[in-house]
Simulated assay, not measured.
Amino acid sequence: MKKLISVIFTLAAASIAFAQNSSLSDPDPTIIGADSAKQALREISVDKFEIEGSWNASISPDFGVISSRLFDGSPAMKEPVKGEEEAEDSKVLGVKVEFFRRGVNSFFVRSARPIPIEGVTKTVSVWVAGRNMGHSLYLLVQDYFGNNFELYMGNLAFSGWRKMTVAIPPTPDGEHGIIQQSAYNGIRPGLRILGFRIDCDPALARGQYYVYFDALNAVTDLYDVENRDEDDIMDDW
């Protein structure tokens, strides 16, 4: 009987631990690539979508016509990044696609120039209004050595605004995967945001489709940046 009770308590504790760490939509940045206790995690604003022309939308001319512009608005549940409560944040980016016909196609929303993030990025998030269509959203990034990667952020089959978050997987050996830092050159930001790709559900890619973006944020480890000595020599010569 005592053994049975012990097993029950063990299973209960395991289930609670799993429930606390089983959220796929909100990865925990404190445990992503945490090979050392030395971390200085900060949430930073990457882009607020406030400047007209800073983002461009594109689609193959064989699939349809696309346009983008800024609108007044903001997700009601969005909270400002700590320290930036007074910053201008009154716009959202809207993208409109007019499909010629149903089929397998994609469209892109790219930053006018790659957006660098200091430190080692753990997670990237963005608020999206996906209009309850089953299209798939991908984050496009570039690593320290200029290699391009795409990360699946989730399906857009939801109504209203939703904060979508993706974890940046750490490199397993410093030579493969997304590499964000190197001992051979320590002054360059490790990750750059290129934009987004939306893969359309062939059955739903018809007529007009609207999608909106706001508050592109990142959680990044700034330990090396904040603990660099002021009298240290910069390796940029």
Rank of each mutant, 00 (worst) to 15 (best):
D173Y: 02
D89H: 15
L191A: 05
N132V: 04
A129T: 02
F100S: 00
D143P: 07
S74I: 12
E79Y: 07
I5S: 08
L11F: 07
A34Y: 04
L139G: 05
Y152Q: 06
S6H: 10
W237Q: 13
Y210T: 03
K91C: 11
D199I: 10
I66K: 11
K122Y: 01
T165N: 14
R101W: 10
V211A: 02
G73F: 14
A218F: 06
E98P: 00
D89N: 15
E150P: 09
A13S: 08
L222D: 01
S67D: 13
L93I: 04
A40G: 01
V124W: 00
P170G: 01
V46E: 09
S60W: 04
I32P: 04
Y152L: 11
G73L: 12
S136L: 12
S58Q: 07
S159K: 09
D173V: 02
S136G: 03
D199Y: 02
P114K: 03
D231S: 10
L93V: 04
I44H: 09
R102D: 06
L191R: 04
Q142Y: 01
E226D: 13
G195W: 08
D201Q: 10
S23H: 14
R110H: 12
I16F: 06
A215Q: 13
T30V: 08
L194E: 07
S67Y: 10
R206V: 14
F9S: 03
T220E: 11
I198P: 02
G190A: 04
N132D: 15
A14Y: 04
D235R: 03
D236Q: 08
I16M: 08
